[in-house]
């Protein structure tokens, strides 16, 4: 046997195994129907739009930012994000929140705002590592 195949093989196998494991662990589904979001107790990425008529609120004491989102069919849900208002939130066309729905609202740990198409090379970070 050639040493290079043993070495290469072992490393690739180990990392492939860990990768597959972590992939199943950290696998997050996209969900554009809020009824599904509300019914399951698993972390997902909910995509929808911000309901502008219901204003957003920033709670300075608890440092939460809350607003309402609706999906394509009009289902609405309250979203609470533990952090500050993302830059550009006001002009966001669509919003992607990552988190879990429980206790009557969506607990978001990450918000992604999408702006109208003209901001092609938009660099907006709402949260990081």
């Amino acid at each position: 046997m050639k040493n290079k195949y043993i070495f290469g093989g072992i490393i690739i196998t180990i990392f492939l195994a860990i990768m597959v494991y972590l992939f199943t662990q950290s696998n997050i589904q996209y969900e554009s129907n809020f009824q599904n979001v509300m019914s399951k107790d698993k972390v997902c990425k909910a995509t929808g739009s911000w309901v502008k008529s219901k204003n957003y609120e920033f709670d300075k004491v608890n440092r939460t930012f809350s607003f309402f989102m609706k999906d394509e069919t009009g289902n609405e849900m309250k979203v609470v994000y533990y952090g500050s208002i993302p830059n550009n939130f006001e002009s966001a066309k669509s919003v992607v929140v990552t988190g879990e729905y429980k206790d009557g609202y969506f607990h978001a740990r990450d918000i992604l705002t999408k702006c109208p198409s003209k901001y092609q090379d938009e660099k907006v970070k709402s949260s990081g590592l």
Binding site: I18, M19, L22, Q25, Q29
Partner: peptide, 20 residues
């Protein structure tokens, strides 16, 4: 793999990358 996941309607958390 992590970056291509959205093509299949999935996504991975940042910890997928950092832990590996």
């Amino acid at each position: 793999v992590g970056t291509s996941a959205p093509i299949f309607g999935k996504a991975v958390d940042a910890f997928f990358y950092s832990e590996l």
